[in-house]
Design a protein around this nucleic acid. Structure first.
Length: 365
DNA sequence: AAGCGCGTTAGTC
DNA sequence: CTAACGGACTAACGCGCTT
């Protein structure tokens, strides 16, 4: 029997900013993603708990967040590069507490601790992890312990912030049963709408419902998965995920179909993306232009290279061509946002730093 | 039948 | 309960084409 931990750092961006500047500790803090269109355009990346009390949470437009905020609220621009540095250190600490490890996002990870044998010991391990993160990085987290990733994830949400929730295998089904179905990880607005038509409102309803109906509505695989998840079943292993794509997306200063304006924005995005490609040492074969129109409809068009590349110029050439085509085929539309993606990646076999050393020794042979 | 290239949709943080 | 609205990522799927 497996024992899985899900660890979720509490309002991570805001917590990092509090550590960087003790003066703001205790105040409501809102970390913002500014789009640059106007002074207050953009969205909330993270809000700390005092700010959440006033209904300010991730994804909320800044204009609304400002209207809800109390006067002492601190608004800060997101400094993702810095948060990534801290996150890397935190992940390295967490990794040492697990047999296998899977980072899910900048602030979340799964740990397989089956080897320690027993939930009591898993709880002790979790407490030790929480203590280490607090003393070494001044961060709190919420931990869920369960028989698989799905249950662990649902458990970590149960008590926040600084929580620790255990759901033993025999309790998994009841733990989920009474919750509204949209709380099940993986169910968003579209899936919810379909389920509602079948009078499925709780996870219990989903766990008991007709499998063939689910397969008809969602396809074989997703149908099966929905029912299993509702029953607290999940066999996904905990294992490191390999990046499959890298992208940069930006908002244009105004809705436009002007080539010069869009190219200028694209040049910045490509420069940034290319830097990232170099930094992690990957190569790519596919380059994609992402366009988002005034009506927020997204389209993509892509081109695949014959041979893997790491060159910025290859991205530029392809994107230029795709952009030209796009405007030709859409003579009316104006764009709101634009982006670039590289995929079909190949990763260096060793981390960049070690590779530099081994390259050096082999070149001296 | 399997795999690739291309594009879309849905979901998460 | 939904709409206002950022950016980065994954997974799944459908289609046409090739192997």
């Amino acid at each position: 029997m497996r024992i899985i931990l899900h660890v979720d750092l509490d309002s991570f961006y805001a917590a990092v900013e509090e550590n960087r500047n003790p003066d703001i500790v205790g105040k409501p803090i809102v970390i913002c993603m500014y789009s640059g269109r106007s002074k207050d355009s953009g969205a909330v990346a993270t809000a700390n708990y005092p700010a959440r009390e006033r209904g300010i949470r991730s994804g909320l437009p800044l204009r609304i967040a400002k209207a809800r905020a109390s006067p002492e609220t601190i608004f800060l621009p997101a400094d993702r590069e810095y948060y990534k540095q801290i996150s890397d250190r935190v992940m390295d600490i967490m990794r040492t507490f697990a047999e296998s490890f899977e980072q899910r996002s900048i602030d979340e990870a799964y740990l397989d601790v089956s080897h320690i044998g027993g939930y009591d010991k898993a709880v002790k391990q979790s407490k030790a992890l929480k203590k280490t993160l607090l003393t070494k990085e001044h961060l709190t987290c919420s931990v869920g312990i369960g028989p698989n990733k799905l249950v662990a994830k649902m458990a970590s949400r149960e008590e926040k912030p600084d929580g620790l929730t255990v759901v033993q295998p025999q309790r998994a089904r009841t733990f989920l049963a009474k919750k509204p179905v949209e709380k099940l990880f993986g169910i968003g607005p579209k899936t919810l709408a379909v389920l509602q038509e079948h009078d499925i409102t709780t996870i219990r309803d989903l766990a008991k419902c007709d499998l063939d109906m689910l397969k008809r509505e969602f396809g074989d695989r997703k149908g099966r998965l929905l029912k299993e998840h509702a029953q607290g079943k999940d066999i996904e292993p905990v294992s490191e995920v390999i990046r499959q794509q890298l992208s940069r997306l930006g908002t244009l200063p105004k809705d436009t179909r002007d080539i010069a304006t869009t190219k200028k924005k694209l040049a910045t995005l490509i420069a940034d993306l290319s830097k990232h490609v170099t930094k992690i040492g990957v190569t790519f074969r596919t380059v994609t232009l992402i366009t988002i129109t005034t009506t927020l409809d997204m389209q993509t068009r892509s081109q695949t290279l014959e041979k893997p590349s790491r060159k910025r110029q290859d991205i530029v050439t392809i994107i230029d061509q795709l952009l030209k085509e796009y405007f030709k085929e859409h003579p009316q539309v104006r764009l709101r946002r634009i982006g670039v993606r590289v995929s079909s990646l190949t990763h260096p076999t060793q981390p960049k730093q070690q590779r530099a050393l081994s390259d050096f020794s082999s070149s001296r042979r």
